[in-house]
Write a protein that binds this DNA or RNA. Structure first.
Lengths: 153, 153
DNA sequence: GATGCTTTGATGATGCGTCAACAAGCGGTA
DNA sequence: TACCGCTTGTTGACGCATCATCAAAGCATC
């Protein structure tokens, strides 16, 4: 433990930039969604896949896998969204344990109001500053890092 | 609005990788800190700069700027940490509006317990997968994106 | 030194995220 | 059939993050 290899100046600079960037991007997207459609980032993260699912219905389990959330977080979020009328919960025909989430007309209105400006914001803050080559590089590096996170220690 | 330029497949792939990566890295760091020192990511974000400040004391305002948080978030966080004995709040001599945050011995113990394994985790999940050239590229791109976020729209 | 604007910080309300605990149904097997 | 382990989903508690609001002090100008 005494022989810790601390971050040197260049490493610290990258690490700082990474944290600042993720924090500020998150902040920018959350504000935009809230402003343009009264949605939180979490609302959008759920509404997007549900709206694209077959018939606007998807099983909780599959939704959770798609967005990478655990069951608890998803359950809480869907409960809050149901209370606001963005989605409805239904029983699952195939599996009595299951639960389905269906997007409501109000939910569809909300995501359709939010999506164009959201994509525009993603472009303005992210893609517009990156050449095709930059984008390819980032994809390669991000996926390499993600791959490393999988086989954990 | 009808002429939205949606993300194409390659862009969507990068965007997905970015969101997955930030989410999973966050999760990995939070778990490690909690496990090794009973600290949240927010605790660590505050303790690190406070412990490095002159005499282990820093003004709330300056701390807030250093970590990029707003006043409210910082105030709530410091309050919780004070209750747990990690930091102490003191009056500011120069400016009667101000408040100082001082790290306690318990706070110093906690960060010293957490830091080595935290840095090791950052290396294992991030730097170890990136060549010097990769790191330089990421620094350049991240800072370019951050720069774009500054001059906002 | 009174007035008005800005800075600094605290607070309550509300939504988000995680953990531990729980309940109910599935599937395989004795 | 009865049992067992696994999967699926919910809940309550608690800490985190943001917003709106407030109060107090600094500071410039008159």
């Amino acid at each position: 433990m005494a022989d810790v290899r601390w971050l040197d100046d260049r490493e610290a600079q990258l690490w700082q930039a990474y944290r600042d960037l993720t924090r500020e991007l998150q902040r920018a997207f959350d504000r935009q969604l809230e402003r343009d459609a009264g949605l939180s980032g979490a609302d959008y993260a759920i509404l997007a896949p549900v709206s694209e699912a077959e018939d606007g219905v998807i099983r909780m389990r599959d939704l959770g896998r798609q967005v990478g959330w655990d069951r608890s977080r998803l359950s809480h979020q869907v409960k809050r969204m149901e209370k606001r009328g963005l989605v409805a919960r239904e029983d699952c025909a195939d599996d009595a344990r299951g639960a389905m989430v269906r997007i409501t007309p109000a939910g569809r209105d909300a995501i359709e109001a939010a999506a164009p400006e959201h994509v525009a914001t993603v472009r303005r803050h992210f893609f517009d500053h990156l050449s095709e080559r930059d984008q390819a590089t980032l994809t390669r590096l991000f996926e390499r890092l993600l791959d490393g996170l999988g086989h954990d220690t």
